[in-house]
Amino acid sequence: MSELATAHAPPVREEGPDDGADLTIVRARHPWRWVATAAVAVLVAMALHALVTNAAWDWATVGQYLFAPSIIRAVLLTLQLTVLGIVVGFVLGTVLAIMRLSPNPLLRSVSWTYIWIFRSVPLILQLLFWYNLALLYKSISFGVPFGPALFEIGTMDLVGPVTAAVLGLALHQAAYAAEVVRSGFLGIDQGRLEAAAALGIPRWRRFRRIQLPQAMRTIVPTAANELIGLVKGTSVVYIMALSELFYQVQVIYTRTGRVIPMLLVAAVWYLVLTTVLSIGQFYVERHYAKGALRVLPPTPLQRLRATFTRFRREVAA
């Protein structure tokens, strides 16, 4: 009985003044956090050790081929395919997204059908279609629709392997890009669009100045995902015997037999390309975060500087 009573009694006053000025805070201890840290550290050390000591990785060969002219050329082709694929893909994708949001039923269904087909058929199959376009149509003519042709050109001359690859990647990408862009526009608050209309801002200006920058906040992270996906996706093009990165390392290792180091060379380059893109993504996202966040996240440089000043202040104290 008496114990219960004490539990409900008002807390006993500690000695000393109660303004808290001379009290120090003792941080809570996390012993298990330390155990987990130690375990992970050991695992990381083991992994690094295995990477360095096993001769089969053959780091010397990796170093030898990493900057070989043929590899550099292959990286540049990969980059070219990625850039063209993403730019053409997103331009076309934006058009498709606008068509799908249009009140016109024909535009809407054409866009829907495009997305349906190009998302459904595997990329590798689409690439082979474009590669073999000449089997479908011997020549392509430009002129009045259903009317006379102004000039004609052989399909083989117009759609070479690089063009076929870009076409395949871009048209496939456009279907995904359309949905990414559409999701960005769906996310905009209707009230703000109404405000823009009420202010009498012309339609095109409204799109560029009001809608697009707000949509970009949603579009950028997903678009960056798509872009990084495409960097690696270009490796599918190897079936068209285009000497992009993946095809090129295969050529080298079938000749030299050094499979693992050559695969590593490709892996390192894909890693580098993706890293550069991720850094770009950070700054683009930061740009479009203006006004959406109360405080912009610091750039890595700013963070480094802040840590440094804090460190100096602590040393000085």
């Binding site: 608050d189 703000r192 405000a195 009420a198 202010l199 009001i210 006004g291 959406a292």
Partner: peptide, 18 residues
């Protein structure tokens, strides 16, 4: 319309513009 000002309940300012 551009000679008629409209003030909304939810302000509807453009968040990405100063």
């Amino acid at each position: 319309r551009s000679r008629i000002g409209f003030v909304f309940q939810n302000f509807n300012l453009f968040p990405h513009l100063t």
